[in-house]
Design a protein around this nucleic acid. Structure first.
Length: 472
RNA sequence: GCCCCCAUCGUCUAGUGGCCUAGGACACCACCCUUUCAAGGUGGCGGCACGGGUUCGAAUCCCGUUGGGGGUGCCA
């Protein structure tokens, strides 16, 4: 029987959502969408002190952020592994009854001693034929058959494992609870999973799991092991060492579209000369057969470049909408009442090309809303440390007080002429005004900002700066 | 140690025996544009790990070496 493929993503709720997990989820999602299949979310929450229920919602939220949405008909779940414990144990008992698994009462210390004495690594199958029944402290081990196990992997090809290199692994712990290898397979069977697409670190588990599928009389799924994501040291990305939390990227102002697009180019590339492609293209063209075989470095710089690209590609309205979450909150220097939407809308397009992260937006526009600019002292010193800067400021105040039309063109001409009189090019001449008005040497185009703020406020700030300099 | 995977510019990749003098993107450098900073434009730097085969022909196929990585739990 051939029916629509069923993919699955099976994270454990042990912390923030890992970008590597995000990519795996995206791969599964793209495939499920294109093939008209299903994406099953299963939370692997089986015991272990590390699991925290609150992370589950975090996983669901993070998935939604990258477009893997629960309300989409392709999405199924979440299922919780802990609720299927009975099925896991039942399957284990069946394997025991059929002689495909056996109990063992050796402790890890005893196993180590035996291994030391024999000079061979791992468990030696000591209890294989001892006919032990279930009992407290006794683990159930899988009886690995002779021969070899061949894993047919969609990205790796044919991978052979000699069964003699695989020890009789544990199915049920001494306390009777199921282990990952077993639970994972039984759940996949229960949920009729047809394709297991996961990170390469699971490849060594695969022959074991395939043997369980076989022993349970089931046809194993299609396997696909995608390369891991690594850090600069070429080590697998880890929550401890590396910045990997999707939530953090979201909060720092990365756009989900940029993150999705970037993640998909790690190990795979869309056709053509550009890597910046919409999800619809990814969904249409992504194939496991085209996935690269080597680990990929998660490059923050390139991610940032993608983000800037996506920010610039937005329409004014889209940008305005995307900006909202970054205009409020603790780190915003102005209070909400000071925010002027009209001014922001006028300035937004000028800020848009200057952003890599959305969180950089406030410092580009804050002077528009604050009563007084936030003076960056380094900028101040750099600009007014020489007489040139101070004199230019005074000249500008005089020149701007002659009743000119307050628009950016005439403002520019005025400052240009004032600077020229002192032998300064516009680039130099505008600096003192910029620092006095915005507080910084860098920012959006100055004359447009001056026009927007209006004569009164600008003159006030220029005079305030002059006063500060005079009294210094 | 043992098992498994991998190997194209610094990085992400295109490339599936001749179209490769190896293409693109990020980063970097230079120049142009310019109202600071960006953006944009133009150009540059830079790679098939090594050694053997196979073939008329190899980045592409085979073998080996070296180098990376992953796994080796009563974690998932």
């Amino acid at each position: 029987m051939s029916s629509a493929p069923r993919f699955r993503f099976a994270p454990s709720p042990t912390g923030f959502f890992h970008v590597g997990g995000a990519r795996t989820a995206l791969y599964n999602w793209a495939l499920a969408k294109r093939l008209g299949g299903t994406f099953v979310l299963r939370i692997e929450d089986t015991d272990e002190a590390r699991n925290q229920p609150e992370w589950t919602q975090g996983i669901i939220d993070a998935l939604a952020w990258i477009g893997v949405r629960q309300d989409d008909p392709t999405f199924e779940g979440p299922y919780f592994q802990s609720q299927y414990a009975e099925a896991h144990i039942e399957a284990a008992q069946r394997l025991f009854a059929e002689g495909k698994a056996y109990y063992c009462d050796l402790t890890s210390e005893q196993i180590q001693e035996r291994s030391k004495a024999s000079g061979k690594q791992g468990y030696d199958g000591y209890s294989r034929d001892r006919g032990l029944e279930a009992g407290p402290g006794r683990v159930l081990r899988f009886r690995v058959p002779e021969g070899q196990t061949v894993v047919n992997d969609l990205v790796r090809g044919r991978v052979e494992f000699a069964n003699e290199t695989i020890e009789d692994f544990v199915l049920l712990r001494g306390n009777g609870s199921p282990m990952f290898l077993l639970a994972n397979v039984v759940d996949d069977i229960t949920m009729r999973v047809s394709h297991v697409v996961r990170a390469e670190e699971h490849l060594p588990n695969t022959p074991k799991q395939q043997m369980i599928w076989d022993a349970l009389g089931q046809t194993p799924p299609v396997w696909a092991h995608v390369p891991v994501l690594v850090n600069e040291q070429r080590k697998k990305l880890s929550k401890r060492r590396d910045k990997v939390a999707l939530e953090q990227f979201r909060d720092e102002g990365y756009l989900p579209e940029a993150m999705i697009n970037y993640l998909m180019t790690l190990g795979w590339a869309p056709q053509g000369e550009t890597e910046i492609v919409p999800w619809s293209t990814i969904e249409r063209d992504f194939r496991l057969e085209d996935v690269n075989h080597s680990p990929a470095f998660f490059d923050l710089k390139k991610l940032a470049a993608f983000n800037g690209e996506y920010i610039r590609a937005m329409s004014t309205e889209e940008f305005f909408a995307a900006a909202q979450p970054f205009l409020v909150g603790e780190n915003i220097p102005w209070i909400p009442a000071q925010f002027d939407e009209a001014k922001f809308r006028a300035m937004a397009p000028l800020a848009q090309t200057r952003l890599v992260l959305m969180t950089e937006l406030p410092m580009l526009v804050d002077f528009l809303f604050l009563d007084e600019p936030l003076i960056d002292e380094d900028s101040w010193k750099k600009t007014f440390g020489s007489p040139d800067g101070v004199e230019m400021l005074n000249d500008a105040i005089a020149a701007l007080s002659t009743g000119l039309d307050w628009n950016h063109d005439s403002l520019k001409l005025c400052i240009e002429a004032t600077g020229a009189a002192r032998g300064l090019k516009l680039g130099k001449a505008q600096a003192p005004i910029r620092v006095a008005v915005t507080g910084r040497t860098i920012g959006p185009p100055l004359f447009e900002a001056l026009e927007l703020m209006g004569e009164e406020q600008v003159m006030e700030r220029l005079r305030a700066a002059a006063e500060r300099l005079a009294s210094a």
